[in-house]
Amino acid sequence: MMSVLPYLVAVWIFLTGCYGIVTSRNLIHAVGCLAVCQSATYVLLLAVGYRDGGTAPVFSDVEPGSRPVVDPVVQALALTDVVVGATVTALLLALVIQVSKRHGTVDPDELSELRG
């Protein structure tokens, strides 16, 4: 059980975020839920790279070879993930500001009609 628990946690976080997006009544809330979905990928990546008893793969104060280290590839991927997530969130929030200005609402249910 312990060998799959972190993966199940990632699945649970992802589905929670999806539920939030679908039932959202506020676009800012929906953007927040998308960030929750994305944090599931951090958990998944770091869980894949973990090694029992491992420490950070940084050798400024650890003698190389003296201790096991966790997988640096997924850590770098998680960093990329965080950066892309932050930029996407910024862009989406900018879109929400424009939607709010043009339509006077941020409830996705009230944004169904097209307007020129």
């Binding site: 060998s3 628990l5 029992d52 793969p57 997988d71 640096p72």
Partner: peptide, 27 residues
């Protein structure tokens, strides 16, 4: 792969290459 397992083929190669190029922070 089971959580916390010892097989990380990419990680091992990355650490080796990083040390060969004198970079202390593998990430």
């Amino acid at each position: 792969p089971p959580f916390g397992g010892a097989t990380h083929p990419y990680g091992d190669r990355v650490v080796h290459e990083s040390l060969a190029r004198q970079t202390a922070n593998t990430i």
